[in-house]
Simulated assay, not measured.
Amino acid sequence: MNPLSRQDHLFGALFADPEVESRWSSERFLSAFLTFEGALARALAESGVATAEQAGAAAEDIASFAPDVAKIAAATLVDGVPVPELLRQLKAHCREESLPAIHRGATSQDLIDTAFVLILRDINALLEARIGSVIDGFAALDAKWGAGSMMGRTRMQAAVPILVSDRIRAWTAPLRDHLRSLTAFRPRLEVLQFGGAVGNRSALGPDGEAVARVLGCELGLGEPGRGWHTERGVFAEYAGLLSMISATLGKFGQDICLMAQQQDGELEMLGGGTSSAMPHKQNPVLAELLVTHARFNATMLPNMHHAMIHEQERSGAAWTLEWMTLPPMTVTTGKALLLATELQGKIVRLGG
């Protein structure tokens, strides 16, 4: 939502993560929507709700369908979601024999929530790899400088000497915990949304559960045994984990900022930022950005808690707030991990 964070903006290099952002593109959502519809057609046939011929025709029609993206975008302001216009176009494109296997038993929220989950699955794999890289970077610093000494500081005052390894451990250990937490959390997050109009799978009668099981398998997602249209706690927990990851990186950045300020010979870095008025300065820009990104995610976290409050069987307001909040948090976390790796590479000496 922040125009300054666009990768093509003058300030974009401070905030943008094109690799994560690309996962949230319109094209990625449309691909996920159509993947859902194709998987649903197969699940309907396997469960006996539609015939194999109907599902096969649907698959062919979905594969040959080219949506009018501009028209979908324009209709989204009217409908609040892009799915109704997408389905109008898709059904108009489909042959008559395909229609019994198109969108049967599903609703817009099923497509959108499942698309979110599919996108987050890709992002989670990327975040796991990046966290691992940052951990490896700290291990390299520890191997080179860990045995040296530096002044320990409590409440920003000199305390007693510590090993460089002690401080690096405080940067690394939480990241290891976060990596384990993310890996363990993914099966709870990466699950199918399939509830139908009011979330209870009633449109398919007794076949709803069977269709959901097959649909989950087709998409490679867990099947939670129910629709979870108004149960947003898992997304809020995930946002909390993103905030913890960025906060841990923010602690690393804050420590580097303070070490740079102390000028006591315990830190030497390359490539600090320059000043237009004071050419002698070497500003710790990368470290400062880690603090900024941590604070941004911390301020976004309450939004995800607000987004848990849905009225009755679906909330437009709370649901939309979730869309405004969670994608930027993933971008911020991804960018922070890139910044941390870059900052590690600038450190040429730690310890006195």
Score class of each variant (00 low, 15 high):
residue 99 L to A: 01
residue 91 K to T: 08
residue 107 T to D: 00
residue 105 G to P: 06
residue 111 L to K: 06
residue 110 D to S: 10
residue 119 I to T: 13
residue 90 L to V: 15
residue 121 R to Q: 11
residue 130 R to D: 13
residue 124 N to Q: 11
residue 98 S to K: 01
residue 115 A to E: 00
residue 90 L to T: 13
residue 100 P to C: 02
residue 114 T to H: 08
residue 96 E to V: 10
residue 100 P to Q: 04
residue 119 I to Y: 00
residue 90 L to I: 15
residue 125 A to T: 15
residue 95 R to Y: 00
residue 103 H to N: 15
residue 89 Q to K: 08
residue 120 L to C: 14
residue 102 I to N: 05
residue 129 A to N: 06
residue 114 T to S: 10
residue 134 V to I: 04
residue 96 E to K: 11
residue 98 S to L: 03
residue 131 I to M: 14
residue 132 G to Q: 13
residue 102 I to H: 05
residue 123 I to W: 01
residue 100 P to V: 02
residue 103 H to L: 14
residue 105 G to W: 06
residue 134 V to F: 00
residue 120 L to F: 14
residue 111 L to T: 01
residue 116 F to M: 11
residue 95 R to D: 02
residue 116 F to N: 05
residue 107 T to W: 02
residue 84 P to S: 11
residue 88 R to Q: 14
residue 115 A to S: 07
residue 133 S to V: 12
residue 94 C to N: 03
residue 87 L to P: 02
residue 115 A to W: 04
residue 91 K to D: 00
residue 117 V to E: 01
residue 131 I to N: 02
residue 85 E to V: 11
residue 88 R to Y: 05
residue 97 E to Q: 11
residue 103 H to W: 04
residue 108 S to E: 03
residue 93 H to Y: 03
residue 130 R to N: 12
residue 122 D to Q: 15
residue 121 R to W: 02
residue 112 I to M: 12
residue 92 A to F: 07
residue 116 F to G: 05
residue 88 R to N: 13
residue 84 P to K: 12
residue 126 L to R: 14
residue 133 S to L: 15
residue 131 I to F: 05
residue 108 S to Y: 05
residue 119 I to G: 02
residue 124 N to H: 03
residue 99 L to D: 01
residue 133 S to E: 09
residue 113 D to M: 14
residue 107 T to C: 08
residue 92 A to L: 05
residue 134 V to A: 06
residue 101 A to P: 09
residue 113 D to E: 07
residue 93 H to F: 06
residue 105 G to D: 03
residue 110 D to Y: 03
residue 129 A to F: 02
residue 93 H to Q: 06
residue 105 G to I: 07
residue 112 I to E: 07
residue 129 A to E: 15
residue 111 L to S: 03
residue 120 L to S: 08
residue 85 E to S: 11
residue 104 R to F: 00
residue 98 S to V: 09
residue 107 T to P: 06
residue 127 L to P: 14
residue 118 L to T: 11
residue 101 A to L: 12
residue 113 D to I: 11
residue 87 L to T: 14
residue 92 A to P: 01
residue 89 Q to G: 13
residue 112 I to C: 05
residue 98 S to M: 09
residue 123 I to A: 14
residue 118 L to F: 07
residue 126 L to V: 10
residue 131 I to A: 02
residue 103 H to M: 09
residue 130 R to C: 11
residue 132 G to D: 05
residue 90 L to H: 12
residue 110 D to H: 03
residue 93 H to L: 07
residue 97 E to R: 09
residue 119 I to D: 00
residue 132 G to V: 13
residue 105 G to E: 04
residue 109 Q to Y: 01
residue 96 E to C: 05
residue 132 G to T: 13
residue 124 N to C: 14
residue 120 L to Q: 12
residue 97 E to S: 12
residue 123 I to N: 06
residue 102 I to M: 10
residue 105 G to A: 07
residue 86 L to A: 06
residue 84 P to N: 11
residue 118 L to N: 10
residue 107 T to N: 05
residue 106 A to K: 10
residue 109 Q to I: 13
residue 95 R to V: 01
residue 123 I to Q: 05
residue 124 N to L: 09
residue 110 D to E: 07
residue 129 A to K: 12
residue 113 D to G: 09
residue 134 V to M: 04
residue 134 V to P: 00
residue 115 A to H: 00
residue 108 S to D: 08
residue 132 G to R: 08
residue 116 F to E: 12
residue 117 V to Y: 00
residue 106 A to S: 15
residue 115 A to N: 00
residue 129 A to I: 09
